[in-house]
Design a protein around this nucleic acid. Structure first.
Lengths: 222, 222
DNA sequence: GCCCTGATTCGACTTTTGGCTAATGGCAAC
DNA sequence: GTTGCCATTAGCCAAAAGTCGAATCAGGGC
């Protein structure tokens, strides 16, 4: 579907108005750009999978289905070549730093003025990493525990990742099986694989690990 | 154990240095005060239970065993007459507001200068609610969902609360039984009661509800 | 083509969970 | 004392969770 001669952008954000604003900014930078939208994690999967060659993904850090860095870890693993910019209402420097360490190509606070967003797009399209003013990537990398969890999540297959996200909503295997249209036995197999890769012994622990990864405060991370 | 003629204070914080500083401040305000310490949730249970008439509890919002407002909800329920001051490195006004709405008698940022901490202690001992400068309790109360979860947790018995906290560490019923020195059947009975009170259908959902209550960022709360 | 790897799928089996009943003892309020 | 509520436990049962082994399928390398 993705045409080779047109730039393709994907905007993943659950807020329609902000999506629109972002699309507008993109068109100002690249007039003939094709812009696809995703308002949830589920649609993001589809859009990304059917457009694996998109030039840039704008990803809200706080979408229904995943909060935080889980979706970023997913993109990093399954579509590592697609640059991903985090767009977020949060502007805590620690969060920004973690986003970059998790592989984001940039970070755009939702409070940014339009022309700054456009400048960010230009910059990132040239392969640079864009950060808000006054933010520096000082200090070392991620917390070792956080890096471990992120690495584990990156090793998950797409199906396993989707199952893990649904575990994080407190769904039963049976419910997940129904949503994904497969048998419960299949989901159990996925769960077992997830537990092994994440080095935990039950689903509750897996969910907790994801929650810690996604936390955007100093408390659970620390 | 608590003597009627001496003021008793409890300092619950996992950071020894800060505990010491706090104790020092207390002694400056009330020279003959008896000050008890707790460095974890487990010891806090014991200290509070054996000193139910303490005059004031200093509670770190981020202790090993519980992060966030769970411990506050516990105190509110089981020792409602004991004033509890939240002490925290976080100074987000939203967090402060939520702490007060969850029944705290005050909020002391860890960054406060000593004399301000002493002023806070004086003020709270007089029955007033103490807040950092520049913070107002504007607007309404808690998010309805958050209030619902807090109310549910407040309805838990002490044992049920401890079991819930251990569920939040991903432990099996068998493991919880071993730690608490009771049979697994007892834990199952507690878990069933917890699920009913919290209006969820399985332990993972119960854990998620606690996580949302404890979250100190805008993401999970929103 | 053929082989190999890994993802996905699934059924059979074991363990853990959770609901229900029932019985015991302690403790506090009425 | 009686009436609750809580904590404790057992036993039973159904459902859910988790493990194992195996079949199928797709893609890449030879």
């Amino acid at each position: 579907m993705a045409e080779a001669d047109r730039s393709t952008f994907i905007v993943a954000d659950d807020h329609p108005l902000f999506r629109e604003a972002l699309i507008h900014a993109v068109h100002n930078c690249v007039p003939d750009a094709e812009v696809l939208e995703a308002e949830s994690l589920a649609t993001l999967y589809d859009v990304v999978e059917s457009n694996p060659d998109a030039d840039l993904l704008f990803l809200d850090l706080n979408m229904p289905g995943v909060s935080g860095f889980s979706a970023l870890a997913y993109m990093r693993n399954n579509h590592g070549s697609m640059p991903t910019v985090i767009v977020s209402a949060v502007d805590d420097p620690a969060v920004i730093r973690r986003a970059i360490h998790h592989g984001a190509s940039g970070f755009i606070p939702k409070s940014s003025p339009v022309r700054m967003i456009e400048a960010a797009i230009e910059s990132i399209l040239q392969g640079e990493v864009w950060l808000p003013e006054n933010v520096e990537l000082s200090g070392g990398g991620l917390d070792s525990e956080e890096a471990r969890v992120a690495a584990a999540m990156s090793s998950l297959t797409p199906h396993q990742f989707r199952v893990l996200m649904m575990l994080g909503e407190g769904l039963l295997n049976k419910q997940i099986a129904y949503v994904l249209g497969v048998s419960e036995a299949t989901i159990k197999a996925h769960v077992t694989a997830i537990l092994r890769k994440m080095n935990v012994t039950n689903r509750t622990q897996a969910v907790l690990a994801v929650q810690r990864l996604n936390a955007q405060d100093a408390v659970l991370v620390e």
